[in-house]
Design a protein around this nucleic acid. Structure first.
Length: 313
DNA sequence: CGACTCACG
DNA sequence: ACGTACGTGAGTCGT
């Protein structure tokens, strides 16, 4: 209704601003440690079933970024005098892992060619002659399809996300799987493996058990099947960034670099770096993150540097 | 304490 | 027939 009427739009706007104020603007200053002058989070290694870290008290893995007002909160995260913040994030890591685990030729080729993956997907699914001819709407739909694949999507879920008819969503999915048959085979294999073994595992062998995969309740079973598809990709990404964190830590110590790794946000590491060491730290972090696993597609790392967390992106 | 909402990847 | 995209944490409200 917010798209059509002022009142619901104002209610949602008010909720959004209230969320930012009550959760971040008012709470984070209360969390500044008087001894250090900093906000310190706790990371948990045995909470998320997929192997991701989680963060609490306060959660620093859900600092706003999607709206202009939210980004003002991110701007409040600053380094000490004489240092800068460096943010390094993996580009499309879960889709790259999907390309690796599935071995799909077309998907691997798209990454190897350095293509905009959502654009390349759109060209295939919508039968556009060249990636350049893909429209903004087609790219947006392809991006939703790519996310959906990682989540073990249904036509219902894709339709709701895109605001289209379920039949049309079904067509998109069928088109995708006919263009990327290796991905389709991988999805089927993930369900089968989950059912046969009662668990699935990441590239490095960490397991996630699926007690509901044999349930007689269709909804529970379907949920377990989506987990069987998603967990190897999300979990392998989690394994890779943990390996990268060890490599970064070792690299900083080995070269006596004046930098500290201060945050992890699932596919991103944030470091506080002395200004004069920025170039050396940048290349050390890229090497560590890109070299954390040897997949059949490259791991690409984007790095930004700035005077606050927002500016480092 | 659960449901709901909303912040993130 | 059935419910529906994966993983989290936190504030608010009602019970």
């Amino acid at each position: 209704m917010a798209a059509e009427f002022p009142l619901p739009r104002l209610i949602l706007e008010h909720r959004g601003l209230s969320k930012l104020r009550s959760t971040y603007t008012e709470r984070l200053p209360e969390r500044v440690d008087p001894d250090t002058g900093r906000v310190h989070t706790s990371y948990h290694q045995a909470v998320a079933a997929t192997g991701r870290l989680s963060s609490s008290d306060p959660n620093l893995q859900n600092i706003p970024v999607r709206t202009a007002e939210g980004r003002r909160i991110r701007q409040a995260f600053i380094p000490e005098e004489g240092s800068l913040l460096l943010a390094a994030d993996y580009s499309q890591i879960e889709l790259r892992i999907m390309a690796h685990l599935s071995g799909d030729r077309g998907l691997r080729a798209a990454f190897e060619a350095g293509q905009d993956i959502h654009r390349a997907t759109a060209a295939e699914v919508f039968g556009v002659a060249t990636p350049e001819a893909v429209t903004a709407d087609q790219r947006r739909a392809a991006k939703a399809i790519n996310f959906g694949l990682i989540y073990g999507m249904s036509a219902f879920g894709l339709a709701r996300n895109l605001g289209i008819e379920q039949g049309r969503a079904r067509e998109y999915i069928e088109r995708y799987f006919s263009r990327y048959p290796g991905v389709h085979e991988y999805m089927e294999a993930a369900r089968r493996t989950g059912r046969d073994q009662g668990y699935v595992e990441t590239l490095f062998g960490r397991r996630l058990y699926l007690p509901e995969i044999g349930s007689r309740n269709a909804a529970r079973r379907a949920q377990a099947e989506r987990v069987a598809i998603n967990a190897p990709m999300q979990g392998t990404a989690a394994d890779i960034i943990k390996r990268a964190m060890l490599k970064v830590s070792e690299g900083l110590q080995r070269d006596r670099l004046p930098a500290r790794m201060i945050m992890q946000v699932h596919d991103e590491l944030v470091l506080e770096v002395s200004e004069d060491a920025v170039d050396a730290v940048r290349s050390a972090v890229i090497d560590a993150m890109a070299g954390a696993a040897n997949l059949s597609v490259d791991l690409v790392v984007d790095v930004g540097i700035g005077e606050n967390w927002e500016a480092a992106h």
